[in-house]
Structure formats: C-alpha cells, structure tokens
Nucleic acid binder design. Structure first.
Lengths: 190, 190
DNA sequence: GTCTATAGAATGATAGAC
DNA sequence: GTCTATCATTCTATAGAC
C-alpha cells in the first residue's frame, strides 16, 4: 500500500520541517514518485497531513495502553519508573513522538480546532489510565496525596522530561529524570 | 526605530505560524510598509529571524533574573510558588514565551546549531540561578534531597506546566499546577 | 528608508495520456 | 496509479528611482 509509505515519509518530513516547511515534492521524492502522483492517494496536502496526524495519535495511545497491559502485574514504583524510561527511549526509535508533540504544541492554524480535540482526547485517556493505576494502589500514598494528585503530577513530570528530550542534551535529561523521580517518589509515598 | 517594530511583528508572526509559515509580506503588511522595504533593515529573512530570536532569549532571561532579584527576601516556598504563577501568567501577555519555546523545541534546520547553543546557555543560567537559591536554604530540604535535585525537579515541573500551557486548557493547567506543587513540596521539604 | 518593477525559484494543484 | 505538461500563486530577494 503506497498510501502507507506516503504517510510514513510525510510523518518524518513534517516532524523535521513542520507542516509548512515540508513540501509535497520532497515527500514524493523520498517515496520515489512524482509529486503529482500523491493526488491519487490524498486529495490535498491538508488531507495527507491530517491522515498522518490521526495515525500518530492512534500510535501514541497504542504504545501507552500496551505498556500498561503488559506491566499490570508490576509494583507501582516499577510501572512508573520503567514507563518513564521506555517512553523517553521511544523518542529515538521513531519520529512519531516528535511529530505528535510538534503538532500538538504548535498546530498549523487551519487545523487548530481538530488537533486541539485530538490532544484533549489523548490527555484525557492518559489521565484516566494513570488515575486508575493510583486508585488501585492508593494505600501506598501519603495521607495528603490522593490518586488524582499523584497521577497529574506524574504526568507533569513526564511532560517536563519530554521538553528536555526536545532540547537534545542527553546528560541533562538523565539528571532531570533522576532528580524528578527521587523528589516525586518521596512526595507521593509514605 | 522601525527595526524594532519589525522585530516585534516578526515575533508575533513567527510565534503564530513558525519560521516557514510566516511570510515577509505579511510582516511588512502588519508594520505598514512594503515587503521590499524590510531589506533596508535586515539583509534577509534569516537575519530578521535570528535577530528576533536573540531578542527573545534576552527577554526570557531578563524576566527570570528580574523576578529573582525582586523576590530575594521572600521565603523559599513563596519564591517558588509565586514564580510558577507569574511565569505561567506571562504567557498571555506577550508572544515572547511562545516564540521562544517554539524555536527552542523545534528550531528550523538551518539554525539548529545556533539555537541549540542559545538554549543551552539559557537552561544553564536557569539551573544555576535555582541551584544557588536552594543552596542558600538547604537546611529546609529533606535529608535525601540535595539542592541540585530540588532545583532540577522544580525546573522539570515548570517545563511540564509549559507544555500544558501550549495545549491551551486552562482548567487542566490549574489542576496540574496544584497537584504538582503539592507533591513537589512534600517531596522536597522536611 | 520607502517605493515600483521585476527576477527566479518553488509551491500546491489540475488535466489528460498511458 | 503514475506519468508529463502546465497553471496560478506565492515566496525571497535585487535593482534602481525618489
């Protein structure tokens, strides 16, 4: 299926150069066809972009849900800390995270509504996944800390580490991961 | 000085549409001149962009240093919590933060080196400012938490909240601020 | 320092042959 | 589904008059 090749290449190009910075000719080039042939698969650049975005959203959610399923038997500490490492490690392996972040953080104006809706669904899903994780183990939490606090502050740290990932200084990211985790775990557990 | 008008408008346009998405004609239009007149002030679009970026970097650092100076007599808790609120509140008041984040997170490829250098200097400065803040008050910290841990995990939370700022859901941002702060403070102090 | 005129390249998109 | 040919538009940038 050529549309999948196109979407894969488009994801990379959009991740590297943004929506406006990536041209159909460079995408077509990388796939090995002429740019006009793209229109046999997608009716416009906007159509290609939004298809790519929808895929990337499904992809992000799939990874996270899959991780939760596969590690449901581990301890709370293990689930959380390993997740941070695995999710951050995922960044190097594909452009999906980079594209998804770029698009969610700075959506091209003409897609703003649509993408904001996607972001909202994504974050909602994420929050409720983590909320129920902490709800199951709420006996481990400090008296003043309820499951919602524990979940939301964990996700805030995750977002903060993603920013460090974008900056691209691995040593600094590592230090931030270590310190944030230490402070978080001390703040959350008895 | 017209160059300042140009840089101000350019900042807004680059913040809204990115480097490639903002055109010289739309910038000139908003300033009230023809696009060709821009070349009397800047030798290229790249020149205008990098000038704008340098200004934005100075601006971000200035705000943070100024805040630190003005609040050096407050308690640690007060300094930190008020900073979170003031810095986040700043987002609505100018496009400087948005532009600076967009550019630092996703620099146009041709400026990558230059911007990475700027980002590095900015974060270094920020970290050492906060490091010495905690160094001064390290008696308030938990035994296992040193000033570096306290500083880096605070800055990670700040970055995480900036992401939420970009998403643009104020109620969610507020919840994250409350929970993150609560967990952080419990994790860091005796 | 601003303007008009213009160059030259690239962009997204359509029509129609094969 | 891919190609060639082509269009209209936009883009950055330069030259030169005022």
């Amino acid at each position: 299926m050529k549309s999948n090749d196109l979407k894969e290449v488009a994801l990379n190009q959009f991740a590297l150069h943004g929506y406006q910075g990536a041209s159909l000719s460079s995408i077509a080039n990388e796939v090995g066809i002429k740019k006009q042939s793209i229109y046999a698969h997608f009716k416009s650049k906007e159509d290609l972009f939004i298809s790519t975005y929808n895929d990337s959203l499904v992809n992000e959610l799939y990874f996270i849900k899959q991780y939760m399923l596969e590690n449901s038997s581990s301890s709370l500490k293990e689930v959380l800390y390993t997740f941070l490492n695995e999710y951050l490690g995922r960044y190097e392996k594909s452009h999906n995270m980079n594209f998804f972040m770029r698009t969610s953080f700075f959506p091209p104006v003409q897609f703003e509504q649509q993408i904001k809706k996607g972001t909202n669904e994504f974050v909602d899903e994420l929050e409720s996944l983590y909320f129920s994780l902490f709800e199951d183990k709420k006996d481990d939490l400090k008296p003043g800390i309820n499951p919602e606090f524990a979940a939301l502050s964990f996700l805030t740290i995750l977002d903060g580490l993603l920013v460090e990932l974008l900056y691209g200084f691995p040593e600094r990211l590592q230090k931030r991961l270590t310190s944030s985790w230490e402070v978080y775990w001390q703040g959350v557990t008895k």
